[in-house]
């Protein structure tokens, strides 16, 4: 899923600025699962903002609504319908939702309430880890299912580098060396031959380095 965290309240207040009537828009998929921008978090943020501005005697109105997903047109219709009556939408979706709404609202500001962080998994309650970068050309079959592009701090393809120590990365003793993990995993799978040949220079254009991406499936188009 896409993992995100809510911005600090002070930053959100600064982002809201002078807008008076603001819809706090939640998203009920990824960011609900990671407790950043689902229905519950929308109501908490709305209460916090109402209390904060109420206490200071500043007149602002915060509406709240959460849809299933802000990245699909059919779900964001309710927000688009309410747009005319608002000064801004404060989206609690990931960056995809903010962009998707902004693309469709010519004259209404869409503001982010979250910092979108990574594609990750829930390791345990309250702990998420990054696993994929969406690079557009998967090589996980060669690396024992462990992504060097995402989980190696240098994204190197012929690791481990000389900074690996005791299975940990040179950037922090809290970060596992991805290439140490890959080595151990390939050894267990009897696939060490996968890393004996030189992994050639990569074509990064399949990722963001090639510019913003778009996927068209003609077989699915109406």
């Amino acid at each position: 899923m896409i993992v995100a965290s809510r911005k600090p309240l002070d930053e959100i207040i600064e982002i809201i600025g002078d807008y008076e009537k603001v819809l706090i828009a939640g998203c009920g998929t990824c960011v609900e699962v990671c407790h950043a921008g689902g229905e519950k978090e929308v109501e908490i943020l709305a209460s916090q903002l109402r209390m904060k501005f109420g206490k200071e005697g500043i007149n602002k109105e915060f509406l709240s609504d959460t849809v299933e997903r802000q990245c699909e047109l059919e779900f964001i219709e309710p927000f688009l319908e309410k747009a005319e009556d608002l000064d801004a939408i404060l989206s609690m979706a990931c960056g995809v939702g903010v962009n998707f709404l902004a693309d469709r609202l010519d004259s209404l500001p869409v503001l982010p309430a979250l910092d979108t962080t990574f594609y990750g998994a829930t390791e345990e309650q309250g702990v998420w880890t990054e696993k994929c970068s969406g690079c557009g050309k998967c090589i996980l079959h060669l690396t024992g299912g462990i992504c060097p592009i995402t989980r190696c701090s240098k994204s190197i393809l012929n690791g481990p580098c000389g900074g690996s120590d005791g299975g940990k990365c040179e950037i922090s003793a809290d970060v596992d060396c991805a290439w140490h993990l890959i080595y151990e995993r390939l050894k267990a799978l009897n696939q060490l031959e996968n890393i004996q040949a030189i992994n050639p220079i990569r074509d990064w254009s399949t990722g963001l380095d090639g510019g913003p991406r778009k996927m068209v499936r003609e077989d699915l188009r109406l």
């Binding site: 701090s153 240098k154 190197i156 012929n158 580098c161 040179e170 922090s172 030189i198 220079i201």
Partner: peptide, 26 residues
Amino acid sequence: AGDHHSSGNHPSAKNVYDLDSIQLVA
């Protein structure tokens, strides 16, 4: 490959690592 920039004096820099050291040799 070089030491990761997070321990240097510009830790907020953008990471490059287009190549690794072995690919650079090649």
